[in-house]
Simulated assay, not measured.
Amino acid sequence: MTVGYFRFAKGTDLGPALAGLPGDMCQCPHWGYMLEGTLLMRTPSGDHTYEAGQAFYWAPGHAPEALEDCAYVDFSLTAQLQEVLRHIQNAGG
């Protein structure tokens, strides 16, 4: 498992960076806790909003967008997370 601390500025949308992954979404599961702000999570079953103070489980198949400046801590399967991060880095050029 990898523990991560993530901060996204309002308007950050990872959807475009996830294009090319199965379903054009992150396929790594995450368990975590929202520390501040509001995050929209797009999933095949519909959109879900997470706010500061909420614990979460994001199953494979999700794409986040920050509705406000936000921060969260999460726990992810290391090998799967590394695959997604490599894809995002390569999407950036």
Rank of each mutant, 00 (worst) to 15 (best):
P64E: 05
G53P: 06
T78N: 14
L18C: 08
T78K: 15
Y33N: 06
A66D: 07
Y50N: 02
K10T: 10
G15N: 01
Q54L: 00
Q54K: 00
G53Q: 03
Q54R: 00
L14N: 12
C70G: 14
S76W: 10
D74H: 15
P60D: 14
C26V: 07
P29S: 09
H62T: 07
P22E: 12
C70D: 14
L67M: 10
L39A: 02
A66K: 04
H30L: 11
G46W: 13
T43H: 12
P16G: 11
D13I: 07
A59M: 10
Y57R: 01
M34H: 03
Y50T: 05
Y72P: 04
L39E: 08
A59K: 11
L40A: 12
A59C: 05
V73M: 13
R42H: 07
P64M: 07
V73S: 05
F75L: 15
L39W: 02
P22A: 10
A52H: 07
M34D: 02
P22D: 11
V73F: 08
T43C: 13
L67K: 14
E65G: 01
R42D: 13
A55M: 05
G61Q: 04
Y72S: 02
P16M: 08
H48Y: 09
G23P: 12
E51P: 00
G20Y: 08
L39M: 15
S45P: 09
A71R: 13
C26I: 05
D13A: 08
G61C: 05
C28W: 02
Y72R: 03
Y72M: 11
H48I: 13
G15R: 09
K10V: 06
Y5K: 14
D74V: 06
M25N: 03
A52M: 03
P64V: 08
Y57N: 01
P60A: 14
P44N: 12
M34A: 02
G11Q: 07
H62V: 07
V73T: 10
M25T: 13
Y33G: 06
Y50C: 04
C28L: 05
A9Y: 07
A55G: 09
A17Q: 09
G15K: 04
L40E: 15
M25G: 04
M25H: 10
G20M: 03
G15H: 01
A19S: 06
D74A: 12
D13S: 12
H62P: 07
C70L: 11
M34F: 01
H48T: 13
E68Y: 02
H48E: 15
M41G: 01
T38I: 01
G15P: 01
H30G: 05
L18D: 05
L40S: 11
E65S: 07
Q27D: 13
A9M: 08
F6Y: 10
A9V: 08
Q54S: 01
C28V: 15
M25Q: 15
